[in-house]
Amino acid sequence: MNVETNKMLEKTDDNSAMHNCAFRTSGITKVYGSGDAAVHALRGVDLAIPKGELVVLLGPSGSGKSTLLNILGGLDAATDGKAFFHDEELTAMDEKALTQYRRRHVGFVFQFYNLMPSLTAVENVELVTEISDDPMSAEEALGLVGLSERLSHFPAQLSGGEQQRVAIARAVAKRPTALFCDEPTGALDSKTGVTVLRVLQDINRQIGATTLIITHAMATAAMADRVIHFADGDIREVVINKTKVSAEEISW
């Protein structure tokens, strides 16, 4: 694998690079609890992610990657520091603005799919398309993940991989600007996992959504534009991947 190390910090004062950024953070800190019991989940993270990239976040449990994802996704508030989405400051948004941010720009994919068991595949996707400004049709979104044949199946009638693909379809149907995936293959076997990763890769290419994937599977890093390594609540290193491989070539 041909990789090159790079310190992102050096580029933050570059104006054109800044405008090209989907996400930017400076000194993001997250502390849970207080006093002796305080846990520093993030210790002043500085980061810039260019638009349209597929980024993989790696690191041991508790290294802060999920916390960062949650803050960038508008699910959690930072204790200190600033985070920007394009030119808007996420850390300054109130609850209402964050809801609108998630509604318009962000798609989420979770380890445990989080489908509504009482809605069919197509309805689960429509759940999102109905509240979006310029969505693709639910059928189209399910077509993207290869589930055109299973539109009116309920989650209970789908396999784990299929359920996760419905979740991806649901996340992308709104044509999100950013796609957040927290352990999307964590509950799947490796073969199904690869299928899901391919779908994520395809979608990243087709709709150009900046895609952040948290994973424990190191091999996944090979398909990323950029790999961010976390340790102890901070970024240890950022690796830019010059020679991406396609998802099919990955195995773990």
């Binding site: 699910l75 809801t99 509604r103 989080n114």
Partner: peptide, 14 residues
């Protein structure tokens, strides 16, 4: 609770 949280994450208002 779980479903409701998912809806909130997806951008549904309270």
């Amino acid at each position: 609770e779980h479903d409701l949280a998912s809806l909130r994450v997806m951008g549904f208002t309270r």
